Simulated assay, not measured.
Amino acid sequence: MLDERWSSDAEDIGLALRKMLATESSIERVRQAEARADGRDLQLESSLAEFGITEMQVEADVTARIAYELGRALASVALVESLPALAVLNLGNVAFGFEGPVPATLPEVAVRRDDGLYIETLHGVARRSAAGDFLVEHQPGLSGRRVADMATADRMERLMDLVDAARMVGAGQALLQYGIEYANEREQFGRKIGGFQAVAHKLVDASIALEGAELLVRKAAFTALESAGGDGAPSPIFARMVFAKAVEASRLVATSVHQVFGGNGFAMEYNVQLFSRRLRSWTMRRHRPGTKLADLARSMLRSETRDTVRHLWNNDVGLPLPRWAREVDSKARS
């Protein structure tokens, strides 16, 4: 049966990590790291190593919760990008490099070739991103070592979709809370601006979208568990959905909170820009979700693929279609 909650292990590790990050990745520390020439927080890297994340052998739900907490704290470390290699290959300090730029602080990159998964030495020129860190457009070569087959590469990509989504949702939740607090304190025309419908509705709409994205993160993590029939990464259906939903929801939150703050949202002394710049950077580093969502929609209109879907809504297997979809399906068959 589908369980939409964090597991007890994910909850325990997540709360412990949140407590540590409250001190080790405070807003002040985030600003200090961004002001450094390399954008890194070396003390935070050391604290996370002592926390033992790189030594943990955990399932996908715990991995997702770790990414969620790192995003929530805007942690100035290149850990989220290395979580898939750590979880799937048991290799640390290896960036996911199937597409888009990778953190300059990670010495190696996992790349996909026609015959499998390879680890290469990072090669390219580092540039500072909108998130304040440094990224490299890796230049793949003919060297490197083959470490796994294409099935493993596919599993690693699906896990990256999950941890990417979890990080965006975590940061979105922290930004939304910051916007709500501001709306409950800021006064205009003798009233708290949170009492104005235009402001309240924006925050409510953003909250609904973000809650849906977080629920989908937990669902996708559940489908990855061995106890749910998973292979350590979300099913292809949930991997596509969770990434697309996280991109959409986090962008909506950033836009809505900026509008609540008005001109103050662009002032460097406020924290809105710290979150929105990172969310913008994270949502643009990899593929655009539109193409994969179109593929997902097509698969839902084919009975041979639709009827194999598991854990969607309250159906263990399959997907009941609405009338309009059944009509499209019927025309496609004729």
Rank of each mutant, 00 (worst) to 15 (best):
P101M: 13
P101Y: 05
P101E: 09
V102M: 08
P103Y: 07
P103K: 10
P103C: 08
L106C: 09
L106V: 14
L106M: 07
P107L: 09
P107Q: 12
E108N: 15
E108P: 12
E108C: 14
E108V: 14
E108K: 14
V109L: 11
V109F: 06
A110W: 09
V111K: 09
V111G: 13
R112P: 13
R112M: 15
R113M: 10
D114L: 10
D114I: 12
D115Q: 06
G116M: 02
G116Y: 01
L117I: 06
L117A: 08
Y118Q: 10
I119S: 11
E120Q: 15
T121H: 12
T121Q: 15
T121K: 15
L122P: 10
L122T: 14
L122W: 02
H123W: 03
H123C: 11
G124E: 03
G124M: 05
G124R: 02
A126C: 05
R127S: 15
R127G: 13
R127V: 14
R127E: 15
R128H: 09
R128Y: 05
R128I: 10
R128A: 11
S129T: 15
A131P: 07
A131K: 04
A131C: 10
G132M: 07
D133W: 05
F134E: 06
F134P: 03
L135A: 10
L135T: 06
L135I: 09
V136L: 05
V136H: 04
E137I: 13
E137A: 13
H138P: 07
H138F: 04
H138R: 03
H138C: 12
H138S: 09
Q139K: 06
Q139H: 03
G141E: 00
G141S: 08
G141F: 00
L142E: 12
L142W: 01
G144C: 03
R145D: 09
R146V: 03
A148P: 01
A148M: 00
A148V: 00
D149L: 00
D149F: 00
D149A: 01
D149K: 00
M150P: 02
M150G: 06
M150F: 02
M150L: 13
M150C: 08
T152V: 06
T152M: 00
A153C: 04
A153Q: 01
A153Y: 01
D154V: 07
D154C: 08
E157P: 07
E157R: 15
E157F: 11
R158G: 06
R158W: 00
R158F: 01
L159W: 00
L159I: 03
L159Q: 02
M160T: 12
M160Q: 13
M160R: 12
D161C: 15
L162V: 10
L162N: 08
L162G: 12
L162A: 09
V163Q: 00
D164I: 14
A165P: 04
A165G: 08
R167T: 11
R167Y: 06
R167A: 15
M168K: 12
M168P: 11
M168Q: 09
V169H: 03
V169D: 09
G170S: 15
G170Q: 10
G170P: 08
A171F: 11
A171Q: 11
G172S: 13
G172V: 13
